[in-house]
């Protein structure tokens, strides 16, 4: 059994919505409502779900860019949710993030070299000479050349910028990288390059990824295990092969049936969900998915299903199992 790197327990994030004349906090948007998951050392956990289901919020809480409302984030034995500002900054040495938008995540007024060296400067890791050497190494590592270090972000394409973002994340030799939709802003042809780069780097440096995406085929390509989120909750989590071949939760089934197959002759039954995703400020009672579920039972309307192990390593939150 491999070692656990990250264990998230019952993580919640409720954003207050001010209503009323005097700004009383009257209601909450339950962006993330009780997510528990684990990540083993060296694996890639994919997190999928539609827009607004809380997957990015989960990622941002794990890197502590957002403070969780409730819950624990055990990273390498330490509870990140209880650290103060200074300790969090220190912890970020081992916990880096890659962002969705490679255009906006690089400071336009800093050269690429400065941007990549920033984590090293912040964590006081090397002297200037070594830093420059390290930046050049990192650039080569992500498939750029060392003379790019003196250039500014606007001189690069989207794919190149994402490589720069990856180089920055790698600079401090982190243990975990949270990749928040790292390829969604890129062309399909560039997506595969960046994904392959991420996989190569994972092998080379023994990285662990939390890979957040709405693109099922991307997640299938890169992940070892996949978690599916719906309305702030994790509804199913399993090894990639089991989840894609044998989804249990009705939501996952519907999601999987929406993946296009690149063969016009294969006829596939498409499960079309009725209705829209409910508002996270006023989620349905019981199982949040019950109003749209095609296998809805009486119990689903009243009782919240818990994440249960339905077969080894396959967890699903549904009353059917």
């Amino acid at each position: 059994m491999t070692e656990l790197l990250l264990e998230v327990k019952n993580l919640k994030k409720h954003f207050p919505v001010n209503k009323g004349l005097f700004g009383q906090k009257k209601s909450f948007v339950r962006a993330v409502d009780g997510v528990s998951l684990t990540i083993e050392k060296g694996e890639t956990l994919g997190l999928v779900g539609e827009s607004g289901c809380g997957k990015s919020t989960t990622g941002r809480m794990i890197t502590r860019l957002l403070a969780p409302t409730e819950g624990e984030i055990l990273f390498d034995g330490r509870d990140l949710s209880k650290l103060n500002d200074k300790q969090i900054r220190e912890a970020r040495k081992e916990l880096q993030m890659i962002f969705q938008d490679p255009y906006a995540s690089l400071n336009p007024r800093m050269t690429i070299g400065e941007t990549i060296a920033e984590p090293l400067i912040v964590h006081n890791m090397m002297n200037k000479k070594d830093r420059i050497k390290k930046v050049h190494e990192l650039l080569e590592c992500v498939g750029l050349t060392s003379y790019h270090a003196n250039r500014y972000p606007h001189e690069f394409s989207g794919g190149q910028r994402q490589r720069i973002g990856i180089a920055r994340a790698l600079a401090v030799n982190p243990k975990l990288i949270v990749a928040d939709e790292p390829v969604s802003a890129l062309d399909v042809s560039i997506q595969s390059q960046v994904l392959n780069l991420m996989q190569d780097l994972q092998e080379e440096f023994g990285l662990t990824y939390l890979f957040i995406s709405h693109d099922l085929s991307v997640v299938e390509h890169i992940s070892d295990r996949v978690g599916v989120m719906y309305l702030g909750k994790l509804v199913e989590i399993a090894r990639k092969e089991t989840l894609y071949e044998n989804p249990k939760h009705p939501y996952t089934k519907a999601l999987m049936s929406a993946v296009p197959i690149a063969n016009p002759r294969v006829k596939k039954e498409r499960i079309v969900l009725q209705g829209d995703i409910p508002s996270p400020s006023n989620p349905p009672t019981g199982c949040t998915f019950h109003p749209r579920c095609n296998a809805c039972m009486e119990i689903c309307k009243t009782e919240v299903p818990l994440l249960k192990e339905t077969s080894p390593g396959h967890f699903s939150a549904c009353h059917l199992y």
């Binding site: 860019l65 040495k93 880096q96 995540s105 920055r168």
Partner: peptide, 9 residues
Amino acid sequence: YVESARSVG
């Protein structure tokens, strides 16, 4: 980019 600087520490 400010958020990413924050995430870097």
